[in-house]
Design a protein around this nucleic acid. Structure first.
Lengths: 266, 266
DNA sequence: CGGAGAATTTGCGCAGGAGCAAAGAGAGCT
DNA sequence: AGCTCTCTTTGCTCCTGCGCAAATTCTCCG
């Protein structure tokens, strides 16, 4: 089968520590697979027989409880390793991965994992880092859901999405794949109704611009303020909160700058 | 410094794949440290210069937001690896670890990590598994907080604690370390008031038995029912809401697995 | 043994959001 | 074009659980 060109992956952290010949060898063991929008790369609960590296596109990873409640665990962007269940000694995939847009991934047989990490310790380190940062993100999410109001959580979610998959457009920054209010609700632990209401309110404030499965951030700075609970920016609430400056030295830096296009990986 | 006896750790998964001499060598690089109840093993934000293996005791791992809100991330029990920030390429500890009871841990310099995993691939695999299951737990928690009522979440938390650190006593199963309502509130994303109310209600139902920083599960079975939202067991609520949970997840169209056509990236 | 601080219990009122219902708006298909 | 299906918007009501406050009890310590 035609080999994947090394240049496509050489600058990914996973391949960083390897020599070109090693990279080629690793690639030779992989298959490239294409997934059309809406199709599942793998389903929660099925045998974890492969692990993947997303080359192009975006995936939505979701978990469903036995009671049928769905939650969006995260979105995968190009360059990320995913489906590494086997590496964590799990025999089955703990979640479902669905292509949010047409996507392409490299797939290795899970059975090779053990052999590969012995041969390429970089791989283990890379996986560990991937899983580690994923753990940090998830913990951050727990804290958010525990301590913040819905409005703040939605703001955080949008900012994170923009950072991870934001595309600059004239109106601001657009999330680079179709995403519904329902999806956002499942990411923030609320209902699509509430998300819709919030986005509507924000839209009339000029903070965002919505559309069907489409969101554009027009004022990332104010959104950031909202996310941090900055009273001064609060949109809807109107309590007699004595405009206490509450400076607190929180930096106002517009770190919400967004990477133009998919070369994620950070 | 007194050497740690190999027999203390030989049966931990981390040491499972190693020969006795290798185990000894690994142990020789570690220091054994004692922490009295209430003292911190490391603080959030400080340089991650060591990683640990808990030999004895229990630790509470907590994160504090810049705004001062605390959350209990998890509890560490004997035999677990922790503080492996360095392994995930983080230079600082993302959380604080406090001894819930007098505890003993083995500590290795973070700087050795890289060398050690190359020499003992088992170590990397073990760490990966540890972090992986931690990720699963955290994700499960997100789903819980998102979809369950406070009462269910508290029930889940107690059951998990009992499973991880339960000690059989005549009255039932007791959590083996001091834990306050506040702690439970921080684990479940609620307030100590609510937790107190719930536990009081449960106590008068004979489900649990409380005390100062002390909790005994008297009827784990019924608690489990509560945790799963079993209407029949519900203590307080009584609405006849027909369990018509329409389980209509999102349909995922057939996965068009057009195999390997390597001309990746259209 | 008494005092002080920490942890816990409880009452009360309010409101943030969830539930429910239904109409409106796009997008894709035939 | 026309139709249908999915996504989105919005109004209204009700309830869970948070916020606030104060009383109570248990432990540790001098």
């Amino acid at each position: 089968m035609a080999a994947v060109d090394r240049s496509l992956v050489a600058n990914l952290s996973m391949f960083a520590g390897l020599s070109p010949p090693e990279q080629d060898e690793l690639l030779r063991e992989a298959r490239s697979v294409r997934y059309i929008k809406g199709s599942a790369v793998f389903d929660q609960g099925t045998q974890a027989d492969r692990f993947f590296l997303l080359l192009h596109g975006h995936l939505r990873v979701e978990k469903t409880t036995p009671q049928g409640q769905q939650t969006v665990v995260r979105y995968v962007s190009a360059g990320e390793l995913f489906g590494v269940a086997q590496a964590m000694n799990m025999t089955h995939y703990p979640a479902t991965s669905v292509a949010a847009v047409d996507s392409i991934a490299l797939a290795w047989p899970s059975s090779s994992w053990r052999r590969l990490i012995v041969k390429y310790p970089t791989l283990a380190a890379s996986a560990l880092q991937t899983v580690g940062s994923r753990l940090q993100d998830t913990q951050a999410r727990v804290i958010e859901i525990s301590n913040e109001q819905v409005e703040q959580r939605v703001a955080h979610a949008l900012l994170r999405l923009a950072k991870q998959a934001g595309k600059k457009v004239d109106a601001g920054v657009e999330i680079d794949f179709p995403i519904s209010r329902q999806d956002i609700a499942e990411m923030t632990g609320t209902t699509l109704h509430t998300v819709s209401r919030i986005l509507s309110a924000w839209e009339s404030e000029g903070l965002v611009e919505g559309g069907r499965q489409r969101i554009v951030l027009r004022d990332a700075h104010r959104l950031h303020g909202l996310a941090e609970g900055d009273e001064a920016i609060q949109v809807r609430r109107r309590g007699p909160q004595a405009a206490a400056s509450s400076i607190l030295g929180r930096k106002t830096s517009a770190s919400t700058e967004c990477s133009a296009h998919a070369s994620a990986i950070e």
